[in-house]
């Protein structure tokens, strides 16, 4: 098939990899921000205060029911329209993914914490541990094993969803691919096939190991 040279040209390969770098950076920063936010959210969700519960519930449901692209529009265009904020596309993306991650991870943390039987706390107290000690040494290690597989899964979803950032003008992997295709429109007319095919596999190469890791962890800790 003609046109393969477009993905073999070293300068194009470097550009695509730089685009992938932006994609991975948005994903990593968002995951890094989601972790503390999600843990905080999850711990708040286990509180008995009805007001806090209702607010967090509404937040979680809103984030879950809205397409991620709508959330991106809300933060990118919405804040500009309503308050004149001038967020960059990348900043808006990180904000949306962190809010999303905080909600989803929060729910996972809540589920993991609530799945640990009351007797575990009681046994820890009987052994003379304080509240903090019991949480750090008994509850947390058990919760983490239940939490990690779905959390890795969430990270995979986040990396995949970074593809939407190009629709609010972030120059990431897909946008770079488009630029290469447009630049070579006449020299390599079949460029789109090769470039989009390569981007497809680049995403796969990043996401597949994460999926496998998530499954492995799940299997190991299921026992």
């Amino acid at each position: 098939m003609p046109g393969a040279e477009i993905v073999l040209d070293p300068s194009n390969v470097l550009r695509l990899l730089a685009g992938l770098g932006v994609t991975v950076r948005i994903g990593l920063v968002s995951v890094a921000l989601s972790l503390p936010l999600g843990i905080a959210c999850g711990m708040l969700m286990t509180l008995r205060n009805p007001l806090i519960r209702a607010v967090l519930r509404a937040y979680l449901e809103f984030i879950r029911i809205m397409p991620q692209l709508v959330l991106l529009y809300l933060v990118f265009f919405g804040t500009a329209g309503a308050w004149g904020w001038d967020l960059s596309g990348e900043a808006a993306s990180v904000v949306v993914f962190s809010l999303w991650g905080a909600a989803e991870l929060g729910d996972l943390v809540r589920g993991a914490l609530e799945s640990i039987p009351r007797t575990q706390y009681d046994s820890a107290y009987v052994l003379g541990m304080g509240r903090r000690q019991a949480f750090a040494r008994v509850i947390l290690p058990q919760a983490v094993t239940r939490l990690l597989p779905p959390a890795v899964n969430l990270a995979t979803r986040m990396v995949k969803t970074t593809s939407l950032c190009m629709l609010i003008g972030v120059v990431e992997l897909i946008r770079v691919g488009q630029q290469i295709i447009d630049y070579n429109r006449f020299a390599v007319p079949t460029g789109a096939l090769w470039i989009y095919g390569s981007i497809f596999f680049l995403y796969f190469i990043v996401c597949w190991p994460l999926s496998i890791l998530s499954r492995r962890l799940e299997r190991r800790w299921a026992r």
Partner: peptide, 23 residues
């Protein structure tokens, strides 16, 4: 299943819509 679950829809669509016409 692995290919479909580990790639974003937008890229799948771009491949179908912009890539395949080249074939």
């Amino acid at each position: 299943v692995e290919l479909s679950r580990n790639t974003p829809l937008l890229v799948q669509l771009f491949f179908l819509y912009f890539g395949l016409p080249k074939l």
